[in-house]
Design a protein around this nucleic acid. Sequence first.
DNA 1: GCTAGGATGCTCT
DNA 2: GAGCATCCTAGCC
Length: 186
Amino acid sequence: MEAVPRAFYDRDSRVVAPELLGKVLVVGGCRGRIVEVEAYAGGEDPASHAYRGPTPRNAVMFGPPGHLYVYFTYGMHWCLNAVTERVDYPAAVLIRALEPLAGIALMRRRRGPVPDRALCAGPARLCEALGITGAQNRGSLERGAVRILAGGRTRFRVAVTPRIGITTARDWPLRFVIADSSWLSR
DNA sequence: GCTAGGATGCTCT
DNA sequence: GAGCATCCTAGCC
């Protein structure tokens, strides 16, 4: 199946985020359906890493859409974003949970003894399950080692909630989930 | 089932 | 030096 084209990402992150639901993320032999995302919306979003302007860490958010923004947090965890919007406008969508589809034995080995329900239910958990680290930062989602495929499920109900794990702009309704999925982070 | 607290180090002030 | 887009374990219902 074809990867989602760059033009898909070249739109408002609040539009791209719900449209990523149901699509399939591929890394090597591992695949998972995207069931939970959060939008981080450019310079006007005080919860965004890019809110205070460009830094070495967030530089990729100011670059072209359709690339990976992978950052390290809490001293031990990696999290994965898809960069959206035009060059110089910093926005991204955080991938928060996947429904494991393929490569599940490898995911279990990487994650250790956790129930399958927790394999990819959280932004740092899915990065560990898929072997994603800062080495993948700036990679192309269209041509790189980590890709998102066009197509996927489209018949499901989308629920919108506040974002998780932030303190500023906590109430903005920018978390999107497949409502009846049993693979969500909470 | 639930909550509280600790791990651990990079990033920016 | 403070804060962090998190996760896991221990302890207690």
